[in-house]
Simulated assay, not measured.
Amino acid sequence: MMLVKTWTKRFCMTVLFLAALGTTFQCISGVKAETMKNWWLDYSNSYQEHQQQYEKHATKTISLVFKQLNKASTLSTQISSQPVIAETPKLEDAINWNQYEKHTVVATGYTAGYESTGKSPEHPGYGITYSGVKVKRDLYSTIAADLSVYPIGTILFIPGYGYGVVADKGSAIQGNDLDLYYETVEDVFNEWGKKELDVFLVQMGNGTLTEDELHKLNNNETMQVFRQQYLSTKEE
């Protein structure tokens, strides 16, 4: 019982002390209790308003971040995972041909057939060149020339045709005339015909050419990308 009275007494004294303190503050500052109450209410309302605006702004910011992340994710899925394969340039564009001596020639397409050589497929010399190698249309093709100008084995680069290796001759071929080998008459008319153009002297021949030498030229590893381009075109 005594303990309850003691705590009641202490509580009343605390309340009186706070009341006296409030009265003293009002007397000194001139601020009334009602004014303090209004300040406190204004502060509470202002704090709540700022808190709501902050939460609203934070929500918008988070939403914007998620939108940007989603957009970035969408863009990333549109990027192809397939490797980019560079297109192999044409042989004419892959090498600086100006480093070689340039010659102006008149080049005519020809075949191994009767219309060009007077030989039929039954002839023992059909398709065999003066050098002894068989006619060939490849990356390095057999061509005919005036052997006093371009000896057997001479390598020329002929724009639009490729490499030509002198393997044959002809009685009608004089000076800077060339005959370029094609497999069919249709190929001659469709792909070449007769042209005057500049060719490039890659290597002067020594008067001989073998099947093995021609095979090595056409199977040079560094040139296979260009050979495949030609063979693909040929198959089409």
Rank of each mutant, 00 (worst) to 15 (best):
E213I: 05
S148W: 02
L209Q: 06
V225T: 04
C12A: 15
L180P: 00
F157G: 06
Q174W: 14
T108K: 10
I152F: 00
L75Y: 03
T8M: 15
L178N: 05
G153L: 05
K195N: 05
F11C: 13
A107Q: 00
I143W: 02
S46A: 11
E122D: 12
G109L: 03
N206L: 10
K9A: 08
A107K: 01
E196S: 05
S232T: 06
E221P: 15
D198A: 10
T210L: 01
V199C: 08
Q224P: 05
K67Y: 11
I143N: 01
A19L: 15
A58E: 11
K32P: 01
L197H: 01
D168Y: 02
I155W: 04
N96P: 01
V31F: 07
Y47Q: 09
K37L: 12
T233W: 04
R137A: 06
T117C: 04
M223P: 07
A33E: 14
L214G: 12
H103Y: 11
Y100W: 08
K134R: 15
V225K: 07
E55H: 12
G113C: 03
T210S: 10
Q174I: 07
E211C: 08
F11R: 14
I85N: 09
S232Q: 12
L197E: 06
F17E: 08
Y126I: 12
H103A: 12
L64K: 10
V135C: 13
G113H: 14
V188I: 11
H50F: 08
L69P: 02
E186W: 03
I158H: 05
G162R: 03
T24Q: 00
D212C: 04
Q203T: 01
K136Y: 02
W39P: 07
I95R: 10
T35V: 13
V199K: 03
F17Q: 07
L16W: 09
L91C: 10
E92K: 13
L16G: 08
G205C: 00
F200V: 02
N220M: 02
E221M: 09
V149I: 09
A145I: 08
L214T: 10
T104V: 04
